[in-house]
Amino acid sequence: MSRQFRALAVAAVSPLAWAGPAAADAVPAGPFSCDYRFFAWSGGFVADLTVANHGPAVTGWTASWTFRSATGNLTAWQAKMAQPDPFTVTATNESYNAVIGTGRSVRFGWTASAASTEVPSDITVNGVPC
C-alpha cells in the first residue's frame, strides 16, 4: 500500500491554497498509486486524481474516498462520480478511459463546494488502498 502525497504551501497573504502529491521517489507497494491535487478557495475547490497502474492491465476502475468536511455540488470530468452522502464519493471510468494498462495512468477531476478540504487519507482503487 502506497500513499504518495505532497503539500505545497501558498503565501499567507493569499486566500487560495494548493496541495498536491509527494515526490514520486517511493516505489509503490501495491498495484496502484494515486496523485491527488486540489486548489481551494473560500467555499469550494477544484481537484483531480491521477491513478497510476503498476500491476497488470485493468479494464474498469472505481476510485472511492471520504471527505472530512461536508462536500456538495460535485461537477466531474473524465469520470462518473456519485456522492451518496456529503462525505463519501465514488468515481467510475467513462467508456473511453476504462482500460489502464500496465505502467499507464488515468486522470479525472471535479469541482465542489465545501467549507474546507484536504487530501483524503482513504483513497481506494478497485477496493485496493492507493
Rank of each mutant, 00 (worst) to 15 (best):
A40Y: 02
S2H: 11
A82P: 04
G44T: 07
M1D: 14
S33C: 06
A19N: 13
V128C: 04
V125Y: 02
W61E: 03
N73K: 11
T71M: 13
A12T: 13
A79D: 06
N93Q: 14
V13C: 05
S95F: 14
F87H: 12
M81G: 10
F39W: 08
P21A: 09
G44W: 04
H54N: 04
T90D: 09
A98K: 09
W65V: 05
E118H: 06
K80S: 06
P120Y: 12
W61M: 03
G44S: 08
A82I: 04
R104M: 07
G103I: 03
P86K: 02
V51I: 15
V128E: 12
T117R: 06
A22W: 09
D35V: 12
F87G: 09
A70F: 03
G101N: 02
E118Q: 14
S116R: 10
T102L: 11
D35Y: 14
P21E: 11
F39Q: 12
G101P: 07
N126K: 02
R6I: 15
F39H: 03
G60R: 01
T50A: 15
T92G: 03
G43F: 05
S105C: 10
I100W: 00
S105P: 05
V58E: 09
F32D: 01
P56H: 09
T66E: 04
T75W: 07
F39I: 01
A22D: 14
N126T: 00
A22Q: 13
Y36D: 01
L49S: 07
V10Q: 03
G72M: 08
A23T: 11
A114W: 02
T59S: 02
P56S: 15
I100S: 00
F39R: 08
V125P: 01
P120L: 13
D35I: 09
A22C: 10
F87I: 05
M81I: 15
A57L: 04
I123W: 00
S116F: 03
S2T: 15
S14K: 00
T50V: 12
Y36V: 04
A24V: 14
F108D: 02
V128Q: 12
C34Y: 09
R104L: 08
S42E: 12
T62L: 10
T124L: 00
Y96N: 13
A23Q: 05
A40C: 04
F32Y: 15
T117P: 06
T62A: 15
V46P: 03
V119P: 08
D25P: 07
F67D: 11
A70I: 01
T59M: 02
P21S: 15
T88C: 03
F5Y: 12
N93V: 06
R68N: 13
P84S: 05
T92I: 02
C130Q: 06
N73V: 10
V10S: 13
W61R: 00
V51T: 10
P120Q: 11
A22M: 11
P56R: 10
D48M: 04
F108Y: 11
L16V: 00
D85L: 03
A82C: 07
N53D: 01
A115K: 12
N93W: 08
T71W: 10
S95L: 14
K80R: 14
V10E: 08
W77N: 13
D48H: 08
V128A: 15
A17P: 03
